[in-house]
């Protein structure tokens, strides 16, 4: 049967294409501007069609941007370590909750669930972080808020519950303990869902600036996202000074430099994007929306 191309179909293709463009074009604009010579931006504003291209902004970024590179490395380092730890912590807890030999597993699940719907909020959280010593150090970026999420716990728990119990029983008959069963049987079998939550955690770490804004003030601990945020607010502050006649004397990064910094920040996400969307879509479907 040959499918006819009706007017309705054409309209659907049209709408879907327009939406796709709306999703991608703004990002493309940032990308193009980062390659546009500054003089042209000043003359014509941001444009999709610059008359010439230049890599001046990126050169400046790598030549003068010790601070940017430091922040970037912070983010890479924190994201790498954090994601691995977060996945291990979540997987281990999920195993215990999916283990039918653990009689109190439902009560323990409740213990995790309660804090999801009721907790003290940002003020006590902030005070506890200060008290425990998560401030002005790398641990402040690594642990609070990011290293464990009960939502992911339940996602993995649900997945592990579907693994046939006979596997665990026979392994235990052969003398394996829970650690061996978890690391040798359950975790390898749960690879799809662990990849999904790994990506969730990874994105959360990479995109985080909450911990930076709350818990660190020294520039050497900034993550790249927080650096970008600071850059923008300092710029608008300087502009206000200038427009009110008081000329700020500091170095003002050019428009293309700002956009180049944004682009290198999106870089890893774009590179990992094929995995990201595959595993996240899959994970959402297997884990069920209910989580």
């Amino acid at each position: 049967m040959k499918r006819k191309l009706t007017w309705g179909k054409v309209l659907i293709y049209f709408c879907l294409t327009i939406t796709a463009l709306i999703c991608v074009l703004p990002l493309l604009l940032v990308f193009i501007v980062s390659f546009t010579p500054e003089s042209e931006i000043v003359r014509n504003g941001y444009s999709f069609f610059p008359k010439e291209l230049s890599i001046e902004a990126y050169k400046m970024l790598f030549e003068n941007g010790i601070e940017v590179i430091q922040c970037y490395l912070n983010s890479v380092f924190i994201t790498g370590i954090g994601t691995i730890l977060a996945v291990i912590i979540t997987a281990m807890a999920s195993y215990a909750l999916a283990n039918p030999f653990v009689k109190y597993r439902n009560q323990i699940a409740m213990y995790f669930f309660i804090t999801m719907i009721f907790n003290g909020g940002m003020v006590p959280w902030y005070m506890i972080c200060k008290k425990v010593g998560f401030s002005e150090n790398y641990l402040a970026l690594l642990i609070p808020n990011l290293i464990f999420s009960p939502f992911n716990l339940f996602l993995v728990r649900n997945y592990m519950s579907t693994i046939p119990m006979s596997l665990m029983e026979s392994a235990k008959l052969d003398g394996a303990n829970d650690l061996q069963v978890a690391f040798k049987i359950y975790f390898p079998l749960s690879k799809p869902i662990l990849s999904t939550i790994g990506l969730f955690y990874g994105i959360a770490y990479w995109n985080d600036w909450w911990n930076s804004i709350m818990l660190v003030s020294e520039p050497r601990y900034y993550t790249i996202q927080y650096y970008l945020m600071k850059l923008k607010s300092e710029l608008s502050f300087m502009r206000n000074l200038q427009s009110s006649g008081m000329v700020g004397s500091g170095f003002i990064p050019t428009e293309s430099l700002q956009m180049a910094t944004a682009i290198i920040t999106i870089g890893p996400i774009i590179l990992l994007y094929p995995f990201l969307q595959r595993y996240i879509v899959k994970g959402l479907i297997i884990g069920g929306v209910k989580g």
Binding site: I89, M92, A93, A96, I108, I143, D178
Partner: peptide, 16 residues
């Protein structure tokens, strides 16, 4: 062993 594996997550939930 199973309870031991719960410790990091449980501790985190307790503190934060």
């Amino acid at each position: 062993a199973a309870y031991l594996m719960l410790v990091p997550a449980a501790l985190y939930t307790f503190v934060f």
